[in-house]
Design a protein around this nucleic acid. Sequence first.
DNA 1: CTTGATTGGTGCGATATCGTACCATATATC
DNA 2: GATATATGGTACGATATCGCACCAATCAAG
Lengths: 154, 154
Amino acid sequence: MTNSSPPDPQGVGQIFALFNEIGIIGQLSRTLFEARLEPGMTIHQFSVLNHLMRVGEGTTPQRMATAFQVPKTSMSHTVAGLVKRGYVTLEPSPTDGRSKCVFTTEAGRACRDRAIAALAPDIAELAPQLPEGLVEALLPHLVTLREVMDAARD
Amino acid sequence: MTNSSPPDPQGVGQIFALFNEIGIIGQLSRTLFEARLEPGMTIHQFSVLNHLMRVGEGTTPQRMATAFQVPKTSMSHTVAGLVKRGYVTLEPSPTDGRSKCVFTTEAGRACRDRAIAALAPDIAELAPQLPEGLVEALLPHLVTLREVMDAARD
DNA sequence: CTTGATTGGTGCGATATCGTACCATATATC
DNA sequence: GATATATGGTACGATATCGCACCAATCAAG
């Protein structure tokens, strides 16, 4: 407990530990996921596919870059990979000559469904090992935490 | 809600959403952290430094690789970076001719303290924006979730 | 309309991640 | 002790991530 500054205004150490746990769990779930995705497919690629289908088709790479909090060059690379696989198409924006718009293809939707189906067994195996009500207890609080952090980045 | 298989044994969709949130928050906090670490320093490098000081000096790279759930080549690379910066030393193991042992140097400890001090203001700024008791509500549940997942990987 | 600042995207180079193959040491079996 | 298997680490190549510089289109002033 690096006890240097005064009194620890409001559980800074606690929040630090919180992010530590979240990071570890994120890493564990990422490894879990990647093992089931089709070879060569990235979590990011899957996430983008998922995002398009959940949030809406036709967003721009830049918007997804900020949504995912990654540099635009990274998003560019991810989208390029999906294009190469034929899972999304990149159309020039009809309203803004600089932008492009991303749409999932039929193959993309199928791929996403396949991926989720491939993931489900692992999750179903994990589920009964979790204490009753744990997920329900965590999820809403995590959502608010994300919302606060999302809003906090000016 | 990919409604393909039968009845969704036990909130598989919920758990999926849970991991989704955790992944996003992890990404947000990673970006937050990286912005404050000294230039060229990775989260992984900081995590290793932190791990050594919290869990114990003298572990082997391989043990840390499994602890962090990353391939051993990645851990090797991370440790090499820390060695190059003079933050850890790699000694041959006295009991096992194959292994090496990792120890933090004085500079390494100083670096870790500096990093935490650099991070604290951001966290302190975030803290008051969080609902009362949120961290306390989340942390224990996240710990058990991590423990279950940790135990689940045979 | 012209100038200057902003914004979306790409090209490129440096570094990180990670799978495969490989080597050395250790452990098990006989 | 000899052989087989397992384990820790490294070398190397392929891909991912990301900062920086650049270009084109938009927007804001004047």
